[in-house]
């Protein structure tokens, strides 16, 4: 089968498109950064792609709230295409700002309707932008396609609004795919949980496991040399994040 086609969605303020495309290319996909205007104008069609990625960045400056404006634009202008893409069984991945967009667009669990959602990502408890590496634990038994065969990861986060908040009613039913963890099995207090996210949630997926979003950046650790302590002989090849991309490519190949 031909290499899966990956659409890396760009909007004003997207800034992780290049390295995300690179990670997918390394994993054997053909990745194309595409501006949202080209989807709206019809010059490009979502249906021509196998995987949709909403990468990291500060779309529309994160004005009002992170990811909010792109989320509205996506659903109001391209909502039908996006829902068809998902119901067709294709893959959607949101990283960092992409997670924020997907939550606020209501394309992750927790969406009551296309106008309402009851999970959100909000300001870190530290009230600061946090750029640091975190230990992650893949939730056993998660249906997530992207984390298949992965147990643990060590990845960087870089965000100011990564705290997942929801109601006690919604929390038990949330398909959590990824949690912040402690390297030694203890509880993930700050800074291990860098934002105060409820139940240490770092990533969630939908019931099918094909729609997945996470705050950490897997594209920033696909080679050992990106590990913060590789000069101490730590980390390995490939980097922990690479599996996310190879899993997606393998699934898309069928």
């Amino acid at each position: 089968m031909a290499n899966p086609r990956v659409l890396i969605l760009r909007g004003p303020g997207t800034n992780c498109d290049r390295e995300t495309a690179f990670a997918f290319e390394q994993a054997g996909a053909a990745a194309a950064p595409v501006h949202i205007n080209r989807l709206i104008s019809g010059d490009e069609r979502l249906g021509d792609y196998d995987i949709l990625v909403i990468p990291g960045g500060f779309t529309y400056g994160d004005d009002i709230a992170a990811g909010k404006v792109l989320a509205n634009e996506l659903m109001l202008r391209l909502g039908e295409q996006v829902h068809r893409f998902i119901s067709d069984g294709r893959l959607v991945l949101g990283i960092c700002n992409g997670f924020q967009v997907m939550v606020k667009a209501g394309i992750l669990p927790g969406a009551k309707s296309r106008e309402e959602y009851d999970i959100t990502l909000t300001n870190n408890d530290s009230n600061r932008f946090e750029c640091r590496w975190v230990h992650l634990n893949v939730v056993p038994g998660s249906p997530c396609v992207f984390t298949r065969g992965i147990e643990r990861m060590y990845l960087p986060v870089a965000h100011a609004e990564g705290k997942l908040v929801t109601s006690p009613q919604v929390l038990p039913s949330l398909p959590v795919a990824l949690r912040y963890d402690s390297p030694d099995g203890g509880t993930a207090t700050y800074p291990l949980n860098p934002n105060g996210s409820v139940a240490d949630i770092a990533g969630i997926c939908d019931a099918t496991g094909r729609v997945f979003a996470l705050m950490p950046h897997p594209e920033r650790y696909i080679r050992q040399m990106q590990h913060p302590r590789w000069t101490r002989g730590e980390g390995g090849e490939p980097g922990d994040g690479f599996g996310i991309f190879t899993n997606a490519v393998a699934f898309a190949r069928g």
Binding site: N15, R18, E19, C131, R132, A158, Q226, R229
Partner: peptide, 21 residues
Amino acid sequence: RQYDHEVQGASVLKPLVGKEN
């Protein structure tokens, strides 16, 4: 830590190094 020093995925030696970063 309030600057993103990882974006673009190109950093080889970061501003904070050592056993505990």
